Simulated assay, not measured.
Amino acid sequence: MRKRHAFLSETVKGYTSLEEYARDKEEWFAILGIALTLGDDCISLYNYIEYNNYEDYYVVPTADGRLAVSHVIWWQDPYCANDVFNIFTEKSVDDEDILTTY
């Protein structure tokens, strides 16, 4: 997860607009098999792993106007339960933390 987070974090460098990032990266992510969805407050990057496992990362605007990849993801845990999870603290969190934890 942390390697995927680092990879995705490299893709947001230099961006300040969710719309511009989505426009520039949508086709590229589609080729990689990652579904990019532009929302009102963030961009979802849905990554299907295998056997119904997934990780859903989020590109969010930061307080200083740049974009970042949230430390909080939706994922399917080893017990097949959907969970909102901070990949650095390794704790379940609320989905509201997606926009504030980066």
Score class of each variant (00 low, 15 high):
1 M>Q: 03
1 M>D: 05
2 R>W: 07
2 R>N: 13
2 R>D: 14
2 R>Y: 06
6 A>K: 10
6 A>I: 09
6 A>P: 06
8 L>H: 11
9 S>L: 00
9 S>V: 00
9 S>Y: 00
10 E>I: 01
11 T>R: 14
12 V>L: 04
13 K>E: 14
13 K>G: 09
14 G>H: 08
15 Y>I: 02
15 Y>W: 02
16 T>H: 12
20 E>P: 11
21 Y>T: 10
21 Y>K: 08
21 Y>H: 12
24 D>G: 05
24 D>W: 03
25 K>E: 01
25 K>P: 01
26 E>P: 07
26 E>M: 07
28 W>H: 05
29 F>K: 10
30 A>C: 06
31 I>N: 14
32 L>M: 11
35 A>C: 00
36 L>F: 08
36 L>R: 10
39 G>K: 15
40 D>R: 14
40 D>F: 03
41 D>C: 05
41 D>M: 06
41 D>I: 01
41 D>Y: 05
41 D>E: 13
42 C>D: 08
42 C>A: 03
43 I>F: 04
45 L>T: 08
45 L>N: 10
45 L>K: 09
46 Y>G: 00
46 Y>M: 02
49 I>V: 06
49 I>Q: 08
50 E>M: 09
51 Y>A: 04
51 Y>N: 07
52 N>Q: 10
52 N>H: 11
52 N>C: 09
53 N>E: 11
55 E>L: 08
55 E>C: 14
55 E>M: 12
58 Y>A: 05
59 V>D: 03
59 V>T: 01
62 T>H: 11
63 A>E: 13
65 G>Y: 05
67 L>V: 00
67 L>R: 00
68 A>R: 12
68 A>N: 09
69 V>W: 04
69 V>F: 02
69 V>Y: 02
69 V>L: 05
70 S>T: 02
72 V>D: 09
72 V>N: 07
72 V>F: 02
73 I>W: 00
73 I>S: 02
73 I>F: 01
73 I>D: 02
75 W>R: 11
75 W>M: 04
75 W>E: 06
76 Q>G: 08
76 Q>R: 15
76 Q>D: 14
77 D>M: 14
77 D>C: 13
79 Y>V: 03
80 C>T: 10
80 C>A: 10
80 C>K: 10
80 C>M: 11
80 C>N: 11
81 A>E: 12
81 A>W: 03
82 N>D: 15
82 N>E: 15
83 D>W: 03
84 V>G: 13
84 V>S: 14
85 F>P: 03
85 F>K: 03
86 N>H: 12
86 N>R: 15
87 I>W: 06
88 F>V: 07
90 E>D: 12
90 E>W: 04
92 S>T: 12
92 S>M: 13
92 S>F: 03
93 V>F: 08
93 V>R: 15
93 V>S: 15
94 D>Q: 09
96 E>A: 01
96 E>S: 04
97 D>R: 15
97 D>P: 10
98 I>Q: 14
98 I>A: 13
100 T>P: 01
100 T>E: 02
101 T>R: 15
101 T>G: 13
101 T>E: 15
101 T>K: 14
102 Y>T: 10
102 Y>W: 11
102 Y>R: 10
102 Y>H: 13
102 Y>V: 09
